[in-house]
Simulated scan of single mutants.
Amino acid sequence: MPLISRLRSSFAALLTVALLPLMGCGGGEGKVTVLMTDAPGDNLKTAVVTISEIYLKGDDDGDDNDDDNGGDIGKAGGDDKGGRVVLLDEPVTVSLLELANKTSELVSEAVVPNGDYSEIRFVITGGYIEVKNADDSTTLFASSDDYAGLPEGARVDGRLHMPSFGSSGLKVKFSEKLSIEGEQKILLVDFDVAQSFGKEAGNSGRWVMRPVIKAAEVTASGSINVTLTKDGGVTLPTVDDHQVTLADFRAVMINAAGSREELVLADTNGDGTFEASFKFLIPGTFSLSIAGPAGITFTTSPAGPVTVELGSGKDITQAFTLISAQAEQQ
C-alpha cells in the first residue's frame, strides 16, 4: 500500500537533490528525506515506474490548475511564481513490487526552507506492468515500446496509459499543511498499488495508471532539542578529583512505549548553553529530564520529567536550568 512510507532504508545510491527558492515561507531551513515502499496487487507480476522529479509546493504559488483526471493532477513544468522546492531532479526507476514490506530512499536530506507546504508532486515519465493471465501466462503493457525501463528483449503487448503524469505530475494534496521547522523530516505517504492499475473498458488493450494515494497518512518526523544552563549562583562540585561541568550531564528522553534514550550535552558554540538533539522522531508524547554524573545530587528548573507533545514535522526545544548541585555525602 505505500509509495513513500515507513522509516529509514537504503537506496542504491543517494540521489542528486536540487533546491529552488520557496516564496512565502519563513526563514531558516530543514531537511527532507522521502522513502518509498509498496505492496503487491493481486494480478500484477511486475510494476515499474520512472520518477523524474519530486517537489514540494507551498500554499501561495498561485498554481491550482487541474486537468481532467479526477482533479488529482496540477500543472507542473516551469513555475516562475515561486512556491516550489525540488527534492529530486534526476530520474530514478523503481520496481514497485520488489518493495513490498521494504523501503527505498528516493530523496536524502534535501534542504528545504522552513514553512508550510500544501502538496508534494511526482513527475512520472514512464513505466510498465506485467499482468498475470488466467492460464498463468503474462501480458506486458508499457508506456511506450522503447521505454528505457523495459528488460532487455521484452515484448510489449499493449499500452500502459499514464495520463499527464510526465508533464503535469501526480499531485498529492496534504490533508493538513505539512510544516517544516528545521532539522530532518521524513515524509510518509501511502500508495495503494492494488488500486492504481486497471484495464480500460472495452477492447482497446490498454491498461491505465491512476495512482491511489492516501494523503491523509502523510506525516513527517520531528526533533526534540534539550538545553541545559547553570544558574549564576550555582557552583559545581569536584568529585573524585574531577571538576564537574555541564558536559557531564545528559539529556534523557522516554517515549510513550517506555523506551529510554540518553544523549550527551555539548556546548558547540561556546555560549554556555549545553544542548542535545533527539532526531527522526515519529510524532507523539515524550518525557524529558536531565541525568547527572555519579557522586552528585542536583535539581533543575523545571524539575523533570517534563511531558511534551511533538507534532508532525515540528522541531521543539525544552530548556532546563541547573539550580543546585552538591557532592553526595560519603
Rank of each mutant, 00 (worst) to 15 (best):
T50K: 08
Y117R: 07
A134E: 15
F174I: 04
F286H: 01
P2N: 15
G158A: 06
G127L: 02
G169A: 06
N69S: 06
E53I: 00
E152S: 09
D315P: 00
G83V: 05
F249T: 03
A266L: 09
E98D: 15
E130G: 02
T307Q: 12
F122C: 07
F320I: 10
Y55A: 03
Q330Y: 06
T50R: 08
A327E: 10
A276Q: 00
D80Q: 10
R84T: 14
T307S: 13
G149I: 03
G233Q: 07
S137L: 13
G71D: 08
I290E: 02
G77L: 04
D59V: 14
G272N: 04
T125W: 03
E262I: 07
S175E: 10
L246E: 11
V264D: 14
D38L: 01
V86C: 05
V111I: 11
E309I: 10
L35H: 06
G24S: 11
D72N: 12
R84V: 14
K279C: 08
I290D: 01
D267V: 09
N43P: 04
Q326K: 11
G292F: 00
R6C: 07
R6T: 15
N255G: 04
H242S: 11
L150E: 02
A266W: 02
T321S: 12
K171Y: 09
L87Q: 06
K31F: 12
L187Y: 07
I54A: 09
G311L: 07
A194V: 05
A327G: 10
S104W: 05
P40V: 13
G232M: 04
T297K: 08
T219D: 09
V94K: 00
T138M: 07
E98R: 12
F174R: 00
G292L: 02
T268R: 12
T238D: 05
A294N: 11
G77M: 02
F280K: 13
A18T: 15
T93M: 07
F249K: 06
I180V: 15
S167I: 09
V212L: 10
V189I: 12
I4A: 13
P40R: 14
V212D: 14
I51C: 02
T299S: 13
S301H: 04
I120F: 01
L188Q: 03
L188H: 06
N65G: 03
T138K: 06
R260G: 03
F174Q: 02
E152C: 00
S10F: 12
I124F: 06
E98C: 07
S5A: 15
T50C: 11
T50W: 00
N203L: 12
A294E: 13
R260N: 10
L14P: 11
G28W: 05
G149Y: 05
D136I: 01
A266S: 15
A303F: 01
A18L: 12
D63S: 08
L281A: 00
E29M: 06
V34Y: 10
I282T: 15
G71W: 01
D248P: 04
A201N: 13
A216D: 15
S118A: 13
N203P: 03
V86D: 13
D59W: 05
M209D: 06
P163D: 09
S143T: 10
S324P: 09
V49D: 00
V193S: 05
A247G: 15
I186Q: 09
D64Y: 11
T16F: 15
V34W: 06
L322N: 01
T103A: 09
Q330C: 05
